[in-house]
Design a protein around this nucleic acid. Sequence first.
DNA 1: TTGTAAGCGTTATCAA
DNA 2: TTGATAACGCTTACAA
Lengths: 304, 304
Amino acid sequence: MRVIDELGYRPRAAARELSAGHALTIGLVVTDLSNPFFARLADRIVWEARSHGVQVVLMTTQEDPHLEADSLDTLLDRSVSGVIATPTGGNIEKWRRLRDLGVNVVFIDRAIEELEDVDVVSIENFDSGQRSTEHLISLGHTRIGLITGPLTTSTGSARLNGYRAAHRNASLPVDPTLIRDVPFRGDAGGDAVGSLLAMRQPPTALIVANTAQVQSSVRRLVQMGTDIPDQLSLIVFDDNPWTELTSPPLSVIRQPLDMLAVHAIELVLGRMHGKLPDGARRIEVKADYLPRNSCAPVTAPVAR
Amino acid sequence: MRVIDELGYRPRAAARELSAGHALTIGLVVTDLSNPFFARLADRIVWEARSHGVQVVLMTTQEDPHLEADSLDTLLDRSVSGVIATPTGGNIEKWRRLRDLGVNVVFIDRAIEELEDVDVVSIENFDSGQRSTEHLISLGHTRIGLITGPLTTSTGSARLNGYRAAHRNASLPVDPTLIRDVPFRGDAGGDAVGSLLAMRQPPTALIVANTAQVQSSVRRLVQMGTDIPDQLSLIVFDDNPWTELTSPPLSVIRQPLDMLAVHAIELVLGRMHGKLPDGARRIEVKADYLPRNSCAPVTAPVAR
DNA sequence: TTGTAAGCGTTATCAA
DNA sequence: TTGATAACGCTTACAA
């Protein structure tokens, strides 16, 4: 021990991994880090992992299944003992194989229907969609726009279902032309905003129900000089650091990133140490509605 | 080859690393990912690294030298062949040892004076400080506040020197009470804003010269209801996605993240392959001033 | 308790 | 060109 200290000896990770057959490393696979949601999620995960002596290898997919497939191969080569990912939706077989090979997989933020035996940590998507819609309905809005990610994603469909349920409960019809499911990448959010406001009977309220579309949507609203909240009430998903710096400050659905990260890490590490019972876990944490000043009652009653 | 295909064989990274003595991996050591500047930087670096078949192990320091030291040890254990880092300023000996052990180190964004033989990629800090100050002076401002990171950091001191040079060139005195060098973490930016505006003779313009302080500074300005630009002209460092979403949109110094990332990766990989001449490289890329609507001429001439 | 040896999967060296 | 062999540094099982 004294000599170890004197020489500053440190065991070599590669040798240990080769001998053990697996690495004290997890892979983190997210879309990209320019989305503040994923960035802060990554920050929390790296932080939590560190406190357990686990390193994080970071890979980004740009929502592209090919890049995702590459990432998974690479992580497999590295014998990572776990993967935390926001899956693109593709590579079903690859994910399954990864899991069968003993890699602990945890999906965060979204799920994949076909992979029911994979752990998932997410917010209560249905509930978030419902509550934000209900809030706008309670302000008298009857034409509420919804911008969401592709409906093939679990977040997209669950939030839309919440939106629908809120309408149903209020005995309001759902106008399908107010619903825009758009791709994650590019300026799709902005375009959806443009076309919604150009409608003959435009919505009086808007929910941007995916973090990937918030920035481009808000940018477009600012460019168009839309008067918020008088002309349009607005709720966006996820409390970015800047949502309170706009005028007016935006009412948001706040996703509890810390909880998501902590649960994800605990699932991965728990399975690593075999401390968890078999069977997939689905953890849903509540997302709060944080009212600020971007929502107001409808100004004029809507003629029908 | 056919059998390789059939069996889906893939070489084991751990064995290769053990044999080769080093890993096709680099460490990325940044403060934290909740700062959009570092997040986007990390995004670009991961992306560039991937295109060269190199994986990235991510570690965060929270500006804490102890955490940084831990990170370096861990990376050393992993035999990474390179490290890209925004150094905290401490651990001088550790950095030097790392370099002497053959790990290619590239500092990004900031430098450490004592380590003159380490590659550095940064923006033209002096120039950025000078140009932003000059712009405000040309609008007639004579009392220009400056919020910057600790002056022990290369970015802090270089930007301050630029600020001073601009004053000198315009034969303006520098009022030291207008200069606030504050810690990176916490709400130091907001507090500096508060105390600057509470001065008997407050500044008519403000430069927030560090990304870490922008968010808390702007938040405080919004909270205080400061009229920008009529009451206070504002320039902030780094073009976050939200700087054009505030009202008014903020004039910024835009740091060319792509360039920083590309240069850093090229330096690390270039040295890995021994394609680079000896001797440290200092690459400085120009940062553009991007005028938006947060700067205006002084309203009333300052009584003297 | 301490010491020895085999094995992890790859690369590199040296013979054939 | 091909094929066998040692070495990388750690863990673990077994023998002394």
